[in-house]
Computed example of a mutant assay.
Amino acid sequence: MSIKINSKYLENYALGFAKKVCDQYFSSKQYMTGTEILKLTDSKQVNFFVIKSLFEAWHVELEKLKSNPFFDYRDNSVHQALNEFMNVLSRSIKIDRGNFEPLLGEAVAFSVILALDPLSFFRGEIDKSSGSSVNDFLKGNEKYYKWNHSLIANLIDRAGISQSADAYKQALRLNFEQQKDQLTRPEDYLAELKNIFHLDLDILFEKVAEKAEGPIIEESAQTKEEALVEEDLMAEAVVKQEVVEPENVDNSLVEEIQETIQSPEKDEERFEEESIPNIPSQYKVASAAKLIDPLQAWEKFESEQYSVMKGSVGELSENVGINQRFMFTKELFDGNPDLMKHALKSIDQCDSFMSAITLINERYVGELDWDKNSEAVEEFLQLVFRKFDQRG
Rank of each mutant, 00 (worst) to 15 (best):
E304K: 01
P337F: 02
E299G: 05
S303E: 09
V320H: 01
Y306E: 15
L291A: 10
A356I: 04
L295F: 02
V308L: 13
S346P: 05
V365H: 00
T329V: 14
K310Q: 13
S303C: 08
E299W: 00
W298G: 14
Q305D: 15
K310N: 14
F328C: 11
F301D: 09
V313K: 08
N319A: 13
K345V: 07
S352F: 06
I360T: 04
D348R: 05
K330S: 15
A297D: 07
I360Y: 01
G335C: 05
E315T: 13
E315N: 12
E367W: 01
M327P: 03
Y364N: 10
S346E: 14
E318G: 14
S312G: 11
A289S: 14
E362R: 04
L295E: 12
L295I: 12
F353H: 04
T358I: 12
I292H: 03
D348N: 15
E302P: 02
F301V: 03
D334L: 03
N319K: 12
I322W: 00
S287Q: 11
S307P: 06
S317G: 06
I357Q: 02
I357Y: 01
V320F: 02
A288M: 10
N336G: 06
G311S: 09
E315F: 05
A297M: 06
A343R: 00
E318M: 11
L332I: 08
Q305K: 06
F353K: 02
S317Q: 05
K300Q: 11
G366S: 11
Q349M: 13
Q296P: 05
E318I: 10
L295P: 00
S287G: 13
A289G: 12
N319S: 15
F333H: 05
K300G: 08
G321S: 15
A289D: 15
E367M: 08
Q305S: 15
A356Y: 00
M309Y: 06
V365N: 02
K341M: 10
F326S: 05
G311P: 08
L295N: 10
N361L: 04
M340C: 07
L316N: 09
V308K: 15
S355H: 07
D348V: 09
D293T: 12
Q296K: 15
L344S: 07
K345S: 09
L291E: 14
F326A: 06
M327H: 02
H342S: 14
Y306I: 04
L291V: 10
R363H: 10
G314F: 00
I360W: 00
A356K: 01
